[in-house]
Amino acid sequence: MGQFDFDVAHLLAGGLVLISLTMLYQDRLYALIRVFALHAFVLALSVAWQAAIQNAAHLYITAAIALVFKGIIIPVALHRIMVRLGIHREIETVVGIGPTMLAGIGLVALSMVVMLRVTAEADSLAREDLAFALSVVLLGLLLMVTRRNAVSLVVGFMSLENGLILAATGAKGMPLVVEISVAFSVLIAFIVIGIFLFQIRERFDTVDVGALDRFRGERR
């Protein structure tokens, strides 16, 4: 593998981590969704690059799914849902941006330390890819726990899943990558349809304790 191939793959994977960090401080839903579309676009480029340098034609399908489904269809659908639920003007700040960013940086550092140490014997491309992928996964989780809106929950989950696809394509010759990305697309489609049909606006943490009791079926 040439140095250039490695550099481009490295650049794209690093770009995903950077965009994940960018998502953490988007407090407007529209902006969050646009940044996510960019995330999906960079993922598609990264997967396509892996397909080219690994000579793995089936990965182009995964790249196409990332581009069309997650880069275009889902953002458009989420836009429509936001308008329908009347939450398109909402600004959410559950945890301050400063602490969230610090936590995000900590998570990236953590995944570098963990993955680079345990993959000492793997080839350098796979090592870097896994470390970046774990960062994207953890940042996705962080996004999910710091937001309370159902739409940003889904965006967090999808960025987490982008990290998984990055890991799967970085693991050279991994079978079933296409099947797994299709399975995930089905999962996400279900989530989005669920929000749309049942008008789920928020996650379950509510300050109204009465509502909590009702949800738990615990009221006498």
């Binding site: 993959t119 793997a122 896994l130 996964v137 999910m144 989950f157 693991a171 996650r203």
Partner: peptide, 22 residues
């Protein structure tokens, strides 16, 4: 709730599966 928690669980399990393959 089941869906979101189950999805996160299944995502973490996939990452583990990829690492086993690695």
């Amino acid at each position: 709730k089941y869906f979101i928690l189950g999805s996160v669980g299944i995502a973490l399990a996939l990452f583990g599966t990829i690492l086993v393959y690695m």
